[in-house]
């Protein structure tokens, strides 16, 4: 078996606040194999985007990484200097941020924005070679070469999102982190964008971390899924297992919240609100919303345990 390309070990991210420290990511560990598609799912505020950003050391003050380490192959990301981290972003790990289609520069043509990525990483290409690579990248995401001459406002949402993927893969990263890459798109365009991401990922042999809350999308795209709740991973398992047999009550609730296309009148929201990270409940953070909770859940915080190929953080699993 090959070595993991990315390892996250005991990562803790905290935000300082006058009313006390808030821990948005708490003791998260996982490893990503080359070419693997890993999903991170949870409600808004569960820490999944913060986790994604902290892998790239993109957390800004008052947030900071308190403990833990992230390794890309043999390089410990915390040890990199500013220059090293700049080279790592895009060339090692590329991020397709949330709402990234609005991250394109409105006054630069698409081709120029891709060329900027080359220039930023010290790639001195001749004009002809640069154009050839831009055309190839656009073709890889299913866009015609003429797009290079266009401005972002001339493109539809799906085309912009694909242009962002083209920029993300421009330096052949080993890991692509996609944070809700299709949340503003309709289903038809969403499927086109996800198929594009799947294709370029396979061509590069890159691993993908898909961050999101749509369990249907996760079921159709990722190989393995991690469920986050209040900053912690509460379940990690191969996707087929987690859908067929979710072991954590929160995972079950997330799957049940997905509107079904079979039986009608079955909208099941998760009761209650996600806890405030400043005043986490005692014991298991999910216990106030869990109908199965017993006294032990209120007193003792569950740790992730290995159960038949899955990792589950629940006393009752």
């Amino acid at each position: 078996m090959s070595e993991p390309v990315l390892r996250v070990e005991g990562l803790r991210v905290a935000f300082d606040h006058p009313l006390g420290k808030v821990r948005a990511v708490d003791d998260v560990s996982f490893a990503l194999m080359p070419g693997e598609r890993f999903g991170l799912a949870g409600e808004s505020g569960s820490g999944k985007s913060t986790l994604a950003l902290s892998i790239l050391r993109l957390i800004k003050p008052p947030g900071h990484i308190e403990a833990g380490a992230v390794w890309l192959d043999d390089a410990r990301i915390a040890d990199l200097d500013d220059d090293g981290i700049r080279r790592l972003r895009l060339a090692g790990i590329a991020l397709v941020p949330q709402g990234s289609m609005n991250s394109l520069n409105p006054v630069l043509r698409i081709g120029r924005q891709i060329a900027d990525a080359f220039a930023d990483h010290g790639l001195r290409l001749g004009h002809r070679e640069e154009q050839r690579r831009i055309t190839a990248l656009l073709a890889a995401v299913g866009l015609p070469a003429t797009i290079a001459r266009m401005y972002p406002h001339e493109l539809s949402g799906g085309m912009k999102q694909r242009a962002c993927i083209a920029i993300a893969i421009s330096l052949r990263p080993k890991v692509i982190i996609a944070d809700e890459p299709t949340s503003a798109l309709d289903v038809v365009v969403q499927r086109q964008v996800m198929a594009t991401l799947a294709r370029v990922q396979q061509e590069l042999g890159a691993a993908v971390i898909l961050v999101g809350h749509d369990m249907g999308l996760m079921a159709q795209f990722v190989d393995r899924l991690g469920i986050m709740y209040a900053g912690r991973l509460v379940e990690v398992a191969p996707i087929a297992d987690i859908i067929a047999r979710p072991r954590h009550p929160y995972t079950r609730a997330l799957i049940a919240a997905l509107p079904s296309l079979e039986a009608r009148g079955m909208l099941a929201g998760i009761p209650g609100l996600a806890p405030s990270l400043r005043e986490l409940p005692s014991g298991c953070a999910f216990h106030p919303r869990c109908e199965l909770a017993i006294d032990r859940c209120r007193a003792e915080r569950p740790v992730l345990r290995d159960i038949a190929g899955a990792q589950v953080g629940c006393h009752l699993a």
Partner: peptide
Amino acid sequence: VRRPQHPYTQLLVSAIPRAHAERDWLAEE
């Protein structure tokens, strides 16, 4: 929604990623 007749409605329904279904969503695209 259960039995769409217009080709556009059919496309819309097929493009919804479903949790409890064959994993053929990307292949269909």
